[in-house]
Write a protein that binds this DNA or RNA. Sequence first.
DNA 1: TTCTGACACTCTAGGCAGAGAGTGTCAGCT
DNA 2: AGCTGACACTCTCTGCCTAGAGTGTCAGAA
Lengths: 184, 184
Amino acid sequence: MAGPQEDEKRNRILDAALGKFAAYGFARTSMADIAEAAEMSRPALYQYFANKEDIFRAMLERILEAAAEKAIAALQSESDMEAQLDGFLQRWTGDLTEQMRSTEHGDDLVEAKTGYAKPVSDAVNGRIRRALHKHLASAGADDPGAAVDLLLLAPLGFKYDDPTTARFRKRLQSLAASVAASVS
Amino acid sequence: MAGPQEDEKRNRILDAALGKFAAYGFARTSMADIAEAAEMSRPALYQYFANKEDIFRAMLERILEAAAEKAIAALQSESDMEAQLDGFLQRWTGDLTEQMRSTEHGDDLVEAKTGYAKPVSDAVNGRIRRALHKHLASAGADDPGAAVDLLLLAPLGFKYDDPTTARFRKRLQSLAASVAASVS
DNA sequence: TTCTGACACTCTAGGCAGAGAGTGTCAGCT
DNA sequence: AGCTGACACTCTCTGCCTAGAGTGTCAGAA
């Protein structure tokens, strides 16, 4: 169980899993599929992950962590509040939903967030929420909590109406502008 | 087929249908259930409506029309923009979702809106959207279209997060405040 | 150690048949 | 006319079975 070697294999498995889950969805992807794509035998997978759910959870965590990293970085950029919020939304909600919807079965990610992968999703969401709240509060917002809710929840409505097109991105931009205006 | 008499019966059927659909959902409600609640025989229903879907559609139309009426009236009230928008949202999104969620099977309404009842839903949504757009434009909004989108779509996100509690109402209020601020 | 072939187990998909419920539409009663 | 009892039809639900796929875990090879 050497550290770097094991991480390499774990990542190979997660890469393979992402491809298969995206193509077939969680239910229709077998451990055999993942093993083949990762170029190892099926039993070997069980030395790195407990089961299929565990693989999915780890994969989701990797995706969410990366998006959160970029989104929070956008808040720290040298520009005005509107641009910062827009950058944040584009990284967090925009890129993520695009990634989900560009493949079949992106819905599985959403489902999982309310199921066994909820702890993972909740943890990252908490980080996002805290960073955003702090940023708005230090900018002197009247009610930072309400602004955070609006920024994080409104995009769900946009997505429901139209999950794919450029209009979604445009609406994120309008949202950033509106919140920025009501903060200052 | 005297006018007023027929309307009376139609309304009695729709009242009965609302109760049953709310309790059992669309699929689990039979024409016999509705007939019994409306105190008439099952075949009689077919003299006023073509079939079960037709009843459901008419029922949904009645609910949506009534809510739209109140919401649009709120826009005309004598107060500032924030209060008008808040009143609008509370009538339209607030009251409607509360009505749906206070009963079992409110989900059927949402489903139907994307199915055979889509024309009904689209028509009322169009009315709402036009009234809101006109109101915001005449108040001098920069981009009325974007504001309308935000006002109508953001609540879907709120609902997704928490369909029932007072927090939902509170968020509608924050939304109204934010949009009102960015309009002026 | 690191991994694999093989095993036992569960679980879902699918086909099939019968029963029952529910729909829509008559001819005929009031 | 307005309405109902009765009818034929469809369609879903249920139980039951079988075949097959997929999972997780060994003992033992490399």
